[in-house]
Amino acid sequence: MSNINILHMNQGVGGKSYAKNSSIQMSMMSKTLTIVKDTITDMFTNHFTPFEILETFKIADVGCASGPNTLLFVSEVIDTVYNLSNQNQNKSLEISIVLNDLHKNDFNNIFSALPSFYNRLQERHGYEFSQKCFISGVAASFYERLLPCKSVHFVHSSNSLHWLSQVPNNLKNKGHIYMAKDCLPNVFEAYKNQFYKDFSSFINKRSHEILPSGRMVLTFMGRSIPEPSSNDCCCLWELLAQSLLDMVSQQGLIQKEVVDSFNLPLYTPYTDEVKEIIMEEKSFDLEKMEIFKYNWDQDDNNDKKKSGEILANCIRAAIEPMLRTHFGELFLNNVFKRYTERIADHLKIEKTKFINFTICLRKK
């Protein structure tokens, strides 16, 4: 997968890099990393095995993808643990980091970057410490078991859990590729049920793998109000659906039946839905839920066309492989050109935001 983007396609299915990290991406990363580092620090300060007797700190980054930000997260966590080990006079502490994504993720890209990663680590913290950091990969769906029972202290996931394990079964959603304001009620219910099933499975599987008092920090897209067809979760995808339908009307470049048969395996939950699933599963306490809002409009000069281009490129970087598989590649440039225009037109009328949740869970 290329650079992590706004959406971070489910477990590494993302595509080419059409845009550098945007201000939204950098802001998301900064806020999430702050929470991750604060959580790890708090684990050893208040709720965990005394740091001075801990032999190995074990971490899993699930849905890691394979872009540069994968090892950026690893680097930040290692720096945090290094500082804690020095403060607590634990010079022998080892760090084990497991990177997880689907089999099709480009783990070779990650592993080929490790020699230079370890060289930089040695420059920052010395040879001896660099030899105590172990990075490995597990290729599997994070909706299934990944690790042995009670084998990990800390689990992280960034911008993956809004992607479902599959499109809901028997979904009849002609003219749309996701939930939209004029969808039938059963479409909303089908998406919600699939998310409940998947997120419950994710939490349950991690509950077996995490040690008591271990933590998870999870970041994913959501929505700010109960209404599932609100603009902050549906508008982005409805504009893409309309752009695909534009290709149908333009000399039949795409067949309408092909558009009708395509739906995104995605769900952006409301806060209460997330809390309900955690409470019903009963393995974790919800310690923190942060809600972050980001404007679609990212151009400093208020250029709607430029903002449309930035956002369309970010979405393309996330989902092009899925579109290419279903529609073919021939007309995608035309689709995203029209998508850019539709986003720009939308921003001229209405400001719209991305909603991201970061939650911190503690294993009971």
Rank of each mutant, 00 (worst) to 15 (best):
N5S: 14
I6C: 12
L7K: 08
H8K: 13
G12P: 07
Y18D: 14
N21A: 03
N21I: 09
N21M: 09
S22V: 04
S23I: 08
M28R: 13
M28Y: 10
T34I: 00
K37N: 04
K37C: 10
K37A: 04
M43F: 00
P50K: 08
E52Q: 12
I53L: 06
F57K: 07
I59A: 04
D61S: 03
A65E: 00
A65L: 06
G67N: 10
T70L: 02
T70S: 13
V74E: 13
Y82L: 03
N83L: 10
S85V: 07
N86M: 15
Q87R: 03
Q89L: 10
S96T: 02
S96L: 03
D106R: 07
D106M: 01
D106L: 08
D106C: 07
S112I: 04
R120G: 14
H125Y: 14
G126E: 06
Y127R: 14
E128G: 14
K132L: 07
S136K: 10
A139L: 08
Y143K: 08
E144H: 03
L147C: 10
P148I: 03
P148Q: 13
K150I: 10
V152I: 00
F154R: 13
F154T: 14
V155R: 02
S160N: 07
W163V: 04
N169I: 00
C183M: 11
E189G: 15
A190P: 14
Y191M: 13
Y191F: 12
N193T: 02
Y196D: 07
K197L: 01
F199Q: 11
F199E: 03
S201E: 04
K205T: 05
R206C: 06
H208S: 04
G214D: 00
G214S: 03
V217H: 07
T219M: 15
F220W: 06
F220R: 01
G222N: 11
R223D: 09
S224C: 15
I225V: 15
P226H: 15
D232R: 07
C235H: 08
W237S: 05
W237G: 14
L239N: 12
L240D: 13
L244N: 11
L245I: 14
D246A: 11
S249N: 09
Q250H: 15
Q251R: 15
L253R: 15
V259H: 06
V259T: 12
D260S: 05
S261I: 02
P265W: 00
P265H: 02
L266M: 12
T268Q: 05
K275V: 07
I278D: 01
M279W: 07
E280H: 14
E281D: 13
K288Q: 12
K288P: 06
K288T: 10
M289K: 08
I291F: 05
Y294K: 06
N295S: 15
N301G: 15
K304E: 05
K305C: 14
A312Y: 03
R316W: 06
A318R: 03
I319Y: 01
E320M: 06
M322V: 04
H326M: 01
F327Q: 08
E329F: 02
L330K: 13
L332W: 01
V335H: 12
F336Y: 13
L347N: 09
K351I: 13
T358D: 10
C360L: 06
R362V: 08
K364L: 12
